[in-house]
Each structure stands twice: as structure tokens, then as C-alpha cells.
Design a protein around this nucleic acid. Structure first.
Lengths: 245, 245
DNA sequence: GCGATTTTGTGAAGGCGTTCACAAGCCGAT
DNA sequence: ATCGGCTTGTGAACGCCTTCACAAAATCGC
């Protein structure tokens, strides 16, 4: 019913200068989000030994329709073979390259509370090419604590860490009221991509990308659909299409 | 640059039967997601004593433009006053009602690993009207463990718990390979809304809503934009618009 | 080699959401 | 009571994304 695709803000469609024979073409944000999913599915296929996959198979494994999948892949170039399908290994490589995953990026995680702790221990980052370079917190009493093999450092060390570890992405897992301050520090340190788990709207310069994940908002969206479903049932009942109470 | 709005799948626009004088009109998924954000901002405003707010003020606090905000609110009805703005308390009430948050919904959380643990302890759920009714895990050795005041129960008790606790939303925080099985159990137990943190594509009947949060995908999207930024700089340099290397 | 079959890649069409711009409406001052 | 200023609500235009449908291309069998 309500699909599973995450989404990005369509207000800024990806722009590529279209210089010479540089990048092929601008890739829509919605497509980028799906490419990441295809990559995950393809990696799993590769691990179980699948060599070739058709758009139909891959699409159904990723939960989209095949026309959309083909159009998405076409933004990267023509890597399929008509009548045959796609080479799994080649596609994995192309998508990874398209998403800029060729060199593993360093991530700094700020806010070692409940959620920060879980994120620090989450294996999915490392397994998909992201290296957690540092854990930081403002609470001095947490500094030095060892989590997932990393020692927690103080937020004041942020700028230095970003420089020495070449951090390109900051993850904010602090309480809401600390988020903007941490965000400002990240931007000042030169970080231009931020993933925000705090339930707060961040203000950043236009050249900085922010993605947010708000757990309560997700539940509220589901709540809306739940209500819609029960309203629908109720009004159908009222209309006498089913037995009346 | 890349905005902060989460997104839903546009492939299924909300449908309301438009019977008699039932619901006003269909609310787009993108709007629903933003309404949840407005609600958060408005609640904060109310707490600090603000009585009235203009679309311009609220929009900038929520990080959207005012036209969009007004159109979003208009789906709920006409609750603003021209020349004045919106009554904060009234709007909070209307949005909460629109999202179906009038009665607090019960949530079952399955998978008490790293992430599940953090989610169980996350205060943001309770504070926004969601009650965690049960924690479940397939690992018998975890059963009985006390987390955030709740005792972990075995996944086999799911159906019973859903019935007795009136669970309407299931949250999956298991490893990827267990996700589909847990999902099937939820659906079988009558749950029609699922929030999935496992990096897996869930197959569900069309009447079930699934939202997914994939942390690695979020990072990959940021990675793409990082690459785009550096590519742009590089090609500009190559074009001689800046000093050459 | 050639035709049948399969599957990709992509113009074109359609749908949905965002943005624009302004009429309608409310308040307060005079 | 009227006027001026401010803010909402919304039709219309625009743009992006999805979906459709088919030509192009590759393999297989004969």
C-alpha cells in the first residue's frame, strides 16, 4: 500500500554541469535513494553466486516495478545486455561508483546517548563502506569510555578530528536542544554532509546537505494511515455496504 | 541544499472516498510527513507560551516555504485568521486529530539487539503519544530481561500481545534475515502498520503500510552528494574557472 | 544466416506536488 | 464607518517523477 521507498527532498534536484563528456546527466534524488537499495540487493545476490539478473527479477527483489528500475539504472549508463539482463558484479561496481562509494568515507558520530550507543555498535555502517572515525560527546564524564573499540572523545576536539581523520559525514545523535550547536560546529569544521537523528530542524548554509531521521515522525505517518484505514472501514459500514451495527 | 524533509512513497497517494461530508480531501503523503514536523514545532512554540503564529514564522521554523506550509494546512481545513495567523493551540489540536494521534497508539518492538535496546529507551515515543506495549525477541536467553521498565517476551507471544494490548504498529529492529519472518507474524497477528529498521525489503499484503529506515542508505545518499560536490569543484577547476593544479 | 524470443533503453504521456501570485478577509487606526 | 495594511487560502502554471509502450539489440535454435 504505502511503499517502502525512502525519499529525498525534491526541492533540490541533483545538478551536474553537463560539461564536455563529464557526468552523463543529472540523477534525480528519488533515484539515488533507490540505487542504494538496488546495491544492497545486488550485493546479496552476488554473495549467493548469482551472475546475471534481469530488470524484472531485480525490480521485484527491490520492491519496485521494472520500468522504474531500468530508468534508474539508465542514469548510470548502459550496462545491461538486451535479451540477457545485467551482470551482477558489474552493476555493483557501477552503482557503487555512481554513489561515490569507491573510497570508504569517514564518519564522526556525535552524541553517545541511547541512540548514539546503538549506532556506534551498528555493523551495517562498516559493512557498507563507512568507517566510524570518532565518537564524540559534550559530557566530560563520558569521555574515555570505550565503545565498539573506540574511545569517546570530547566535542571540542571535533575540528581536529575532522582534519586528521578526513571526516566527510557527521551524524548527530544528541538531544534536540544540542543539535543546532553541534551542527554549527560540524559546519565550521568543514563537514558538508550531516545525518540528523535529533528531532530538530537544522539551519545550515546552502552548500551543506542535511538528511534527517525522526523516529516519532515515522510513527506519526503510520498513525495517519492507520486512521485512514479505520475511517474508511467505518464510513463504508455507515454507507451500508457491509452489515450495520 | 538538499532539504531536510523526509519523504514517503508517492506511488500511493492517500485516498479518501469523498463520501457525503466525510473527510475533507485526500492528503498527499508528502504533506502528512511535513504535518508531523509542524506539530513538533508548534508543540515547542506552545510550551514557550506563543499564542499565535503566522505561516511565515512557522514555515521558517519548520524549514519550508510559507506557500507550501499554507497549502499543507489547508488540507486539514481553514483554521487560520487572515491578517493575523494561526492559533497555536488550535493548530496543534487539529494536526494531532488529522494525523490520528488523538488516542495514543500501542507499539510492539521486535528485536532487542543494539538498535532495539536504544529504541526501547528512546523517550521521544512516549512524549509524542506512542506507548511501547511490548518488547519481543526470538532469543530465549533474552526473555525476561528488563529494559526501560518492560520485560522482554518471546516472539511466540506476539499474537496474544497484539490482541490484549491492542497493538496497532509493529517496529522491526531485527537482523535483516529475520525481518520477513517477523513481518509475516505481525501481519498474521493483525498489525497493519510496520516500521522496519532492518535492511531488507519486506513483502506484505497491499492493505499493510510499511515504512523503512535504513541507516546505511541514508549515508550512501549523503555520499552521493559529497561526490557530486567534489566533482563539481574538480570540473570547474579543469575548466580553468579557478587556478589550475 | 535468419527468424523467433527475450530483455534493455528511452521517448512520450500522464500524474502529483511545489511554487506563484492574487483575491478574499480580518484587524486596527482614524 | 471606512481605509490601509497584513495574512490566509487557493486556482493555475510549472516541473519533476513515474508509467507506458515500443524500437533496438542480443541470444538461441535450426
Amino acid at each position: 500500500m504505502c511503499g517502502q521507498e525512502p525519499m529525498t527532498d525534491p526541492s533540490d534536484a541533483a545538478i551536474v554541469p553537463a560539461d564536455g563528456r563529464g557526468e552523463r546527466r543529472s540523477i534525480p534524488d528519488a533515484t539515488v535513494a533507490r540505487l542504494a537499495v538496488y546495491l544492497r540487493v545486488l550485493t546479496a545476490l552476488a554473495e549467493q553466486g548469482t551472475v546475471t539478473v534481469s530488470s524484472e527479477e531485480l525490480a521485484s527483489a527491490a520492491g519496485v516495478n521494472s520500468a522504474k528500475l531500468r530508468k534508474d539504472l539508465s542514469y548510470l549508463g548502459s550496462y545491461g545486455v538486451r535479451g540477457v539482463g545485467y551482470d551482477v558484479a558489474l552493476l555493483v561496481e557501477r552503482i557503487a561508483r555512481g554513489l561515490g562509494l569507491t573510497r570508504g568515507r569517514a564518519v564522526a558520530l556525535i552524541g553517545i546517548g541511547n541512540l548514539g550507543h546503538a549506532l556506534a555498535g551498528y555493523g551495517g555502517f562498516a559493512s557498507r563502506g563507512f568507517r566510524i572515525a570518532a565518537l564524540l560527546d559534550a559530557d566530560a564524564s563520558r569521555v574515555g569510555e570505550l565503545i565498539a573499540g573506540l574511545s569517546v572523545r570530547h566535542i571540542d576536539d571535533l575540528a581536529e578530528i575532522v582534519r586528521t581523520e578526513q571526516v566527510s559525514i557527521g551524524v548527530i545523535a544528541t538531544p534536540a536542544q544540542a543539535a543546532q550547536d553541534v551542527c554549527d560546529r560540524l559546519v565550521a569544521a568543514g563537514v558538508t554532509s550531516i545525518l540528523n537523528f535529533a528531532p530538530a530542524v537544522l539551519v545550515v548554509p546552502e552548500y551543506v546537505d542535511v538528511r534527517k531521521v525522526d523516529l516519532a515522525v515515522e510513527l506519526q505517518i503510520l498513525s495517519f494511515h492507520e486512521q485512514r484505514k479505520s475511517l474508511r472501514t467505518r464510513s463504508r459500514r455507515r454507507a451500508g455496504l457491509e452489515e450495520v451495527g
